[in-house]
């Protein structure tokens, strides 16, 4: 995480300096903060650079997850970001607290083509991805089918790498324990369900290597330290497509996520921010991103334009949606802190 992060930060700093030297007051300008990593690399190539080519000075920045920094920026009055990538929980909480502008969907040309989940009050869908099981078929005798297999250390001995976070990990634990996909959040909302999820995590603990950044999880898979990893499908697809790796994603029982674009309250370049949102919502552009990275996109017109060989990989592919569960942002807004504390206590023992 730190490596890619530092790289992104350095790049951001270089871009900021370069901009400061060259920008003239009349020029259109916009600062966009993304989460770094593979997505930001791809988005830079396919969204940022072409958008800058339309005559806008685009300053790129990167940020880490967490509403705290955004709140400090807005309330401290020195926010320089015009558009940020944000997680669903950040968008919802930030919207309620008045940290983000409400998005005026009449200004988004292709708004009608976006899937409903991609149109939050303060968040316009950026990318859709899954938390899924991934493995290297060359090193695995038999393909795992679901989270129960992920937990099955008798049949597949070796370490597994999981996200060091209660979100996704507890859902996976309950699915592994036989809870029906439709009942996962109902179960997890009860104290008994939480005990059950944590007991299941504890059961696998001796065989878990935790990751804090998706790049780490892929590294564990590549080096053979982990036989299975729970990671984002887009990272596996992107490295398969881009670097010719041969890892596989299990699309059964995946946990679906959406990241959004949001406009911090009082953004200095609101009009340009909307131009960027429009630009980033165009079907063709989103299809390019999906084709190149194997990540799903919210514009429904983009799917038919995606390369046919990539289409089956996408989390938005109807076959993959059938058995997936949608990560429940409202549940996590309510329970993240408490469950995170319990998880930190469990794995810190």
């Amino acid at each position: 995480m730190f490596k890619s992060h530092i790289k992104a930060l350095c790049l951001g700093a270089a871009l900021v300096t370069a901009t400061a030297l060259s920008v003239s007051a009349q020029e259109k300008q916009i600062t966009v903060a993304n989460f770094g990593g593979l997505v930001q690399d791809m988005v830079r190539e396919l969204y940022f650079s072409p958008f800058a080519a339309t005559g806008v000075k685009l300053v790129e920045d990167s940020r880490d997850y967490g509403i705290g920094v955004i709140r400090t920026r807005i309330e401290g009055g020195n926010n320089t970001w015009d558009v940020v990538a944000a997680e669903d929980v950040e968008v919802i909480q930030g919207c309620q607290e008045g940290l983000f502008e409400k998005i005026d969907y009449s200004k988004i040309k292709e708004a009608a083509k976006l899937i409903p989940d991609a149109k939050l009050d303060c968040g316009l869908g950026e990318v859709l991805y899954n938390m899924s099981i991934a493995y290297d078929p060359a090193k695995t005798s038999e393909a795992p089918q679901n989270w129960a297999d992920f937990w099955n250390v008798k049949k597949w001995p070796g370490k597994r790498s999981l996200y060091r976070d209660p979100r996704d990990t507890l859902e996976a634990a309950l699915l592994a324990d036989g809870v029906a996909p439709a009942d996962v959040y109902k179960t997890l909302a009860t104290p008994e369900g939480q005990d059950r999820a944590f007991a299941k995590v504890k059961e696998l603990m001796p065989n878990i290597i935790w990751w804090t950044n998706p790049g780490q999880s892929r590294q564990f898979l590549a080096s053979g330290e982990a036989v299975f990893i729970a990671t984002y499908d887009s990272g596996i697809n992107a490295t398969n497509l881009g670097e010719g790796l041969k890892n596989k994603v299990v699309n059964n029982n995946s946990i679906r996520h959406i990241d959004y674009w949001a406009i911090p309250k009082g953004a200095k370049n609101l009009d340009t921010a909307y131009s960027f949102l429009n630009f980033a919502t165009e079907a063709e552009r989103q299809a390019q991103l999906a084709s190149k990275m194997g990540i799903s996109v919210p514009n429904t017109d983009a799917l038919p334009l995606v390369k046919p060989e990539v289409l089956p990989l996408l989390s938005a592919n109807p076959d993959n949606i059938k058995t997936a569960i949608q990560s429940n942002a409202s549940f996590w807004l309510d329970n993240y802190d408490a469950l995170n504390q319990r998880m930190t206590t469990l794995i810190g023992q």
Binding site: D64, I67, Y336, D337
Partner: peptide, 8 residues
């Protein structure tokens, strides 16, 4: 964590 992520 409590400063940046959870803002507690």
């Amino acid at each position: 964590f409590y400063v940046t992520k959870s803002s507690n």
